[in-house]
């Protein structure tokens, strides 16, 4: 019987070594070490042995059962990990296939550039102040030191309405008057954004409507050198720390001295190209020291207060920043344009 037992052990181990899958492993377990397996069967046959032989046989059977169980566990672990590997191998994906598309919303490029501009000015203490699109001639021109029939009116091709004295604002400057009258005599730092309108044929460079962002600072010791420093900081923040600026004299009836600010051309790094008309400079905003008459109209005593103001077209800034060559894209509502931002 011990010999039979030994043979059984050898046979079981031999068979186990050949097993490679879970099903065969289950079969082996049933056949050799399960409740009705061969080893259990051998235990039942203990009655065939003499009393002396029984302890030795019993001990041996247990030993073999434990050894086979241990071998089974070890084999099972190997088989399982092999099976796992096979399963994982068969589950491989072509990771180069496109992912499931998600609908992505985006902000209009004008909104994006406005947010950039608001954020930068916000850091310098300038807060957004909004005013209406439809304005009085008085706010849009007269209180800004532009009387009726003044030659400076040629600078703004204006849309008039059928109502006397009511126009579409040509710039956000009437917001200067509104802000000053609201906040006087406190110091002011505001950003005045909004849609403006000009009587101009729509071309790649001109739209009848455009966003303007204007800024106004009023206080007791604001100078033109502050204006230069503040606007240069803004430009470097928006276009990059190396960006040079240039101020040259200009004319706006509501500022004096007045200036245009040019920024070093972004496309050619100031070397000269078609966009900058070979000058290396691109005009991005008009600015100046608030005219004493305007300060007075806003309620501030020009003998005690000074201020600066500036205005820029945000589409024009976006066009420069992103290299857009046609302003008509902005209000075209064409996803093929808008999705690029």
């Amino acid at each position: 019987m011990l010999e039979q037992l030994e043979q059984l052990r050898l046979e079981a181990l031999e068979k186990l070594a050949a097993i490679a899958d879970g099903e065969a492993l289950d079969g082996w377990e049933k056949r050799f070490i399960g409740r009705k397996g061969a080893v259990t069967e051998m235990t039942r046959r203990v009655g065939e042995l003499s009393k002396d032989e029984r302890p030795e046989f019993g001990r041996r059977v247990n030993e073999i059962k434990q050894a086979l169980s241990a071998a089974y566990e070890a084999r099972a672990a190997t088989v399982q990990s092999a099976e796992m590997e096979r399963r994982l191998a068969s589950g491989a994906l072509d990771v180069s296939l496109p992912g499931r598309p998600k609908l992505l919303g985006r902000l209009h490029p004008s909104t994006q550039i406005l947010r950039d501009i608001f954020r930068i000015w916000g850091d310098m203490g300038f807060q957004v102040y909004r005013s209406p699109d439809v304005e009085t001639d008085e706010n849009n021109f007269q209180l800004l030191n532009i009387p009726p029939d003044h030659p400076a009116r040629d600078m703004w091709a204006t849309f008039y309405t059928t109502r006397e004295g009511i126009i579409l604002r040509t710039h956000t400057s009437p917001g200067q008057i509104r802000a000053m009258r609201q906040y006087c005599p406190e110091p002011i730092r505001v950003i005045l954004p909004g849609m403006c309108y000009r009587y101009e044929q729509v071309t790649a460079r001109h739209e009848t409507q455009f966003y303007q962002v204007e800024g106004l600072a009023v206080g007791n010791q604001i100078t033109m050198s502050d204006l230069k420093g503040t606007l240069s900081s803004f430009t470097r923040r928006l276009f990059g720390p190396e960006r040079e600026t240039r101020f040259r004299p200009s004319y706006f009836p509501f500022t004096e001295p007045s200036a245009e600010m040019d920024v070093e051309c972004i496309l050619c790094e100031g070397k000269g190209c078609a966009v900058c008309k070979q000058t290396g400079w691109v005009e991005i905003l008009g600015c100046g020291m608030v005219h004493p008459v305007v300060l007075q109209n806003g309620g501030y005593d020009p003998a005690k207060y000074t201020g600066f103001a500036f205005g820029m077209g945000s589409e024009r800034i976006a066009m420069l920043k992103y290299g857009i060559n046609d302003i008509r894209y902005f209000w075209s509502n064409d996803l093929r344009f808008l999705e690029q931002f």
Partner: peptide, 25 residues
Amino acid sequence: AEEIARLYGYQHIPETEMGDRLPPL
């Protein structure tokens, strides 16, 4: 002041930071 600035040269006016009091937020 504008004529003086023009002839002095805008490019020669320094760039400074605003030292003025901040308005109420």
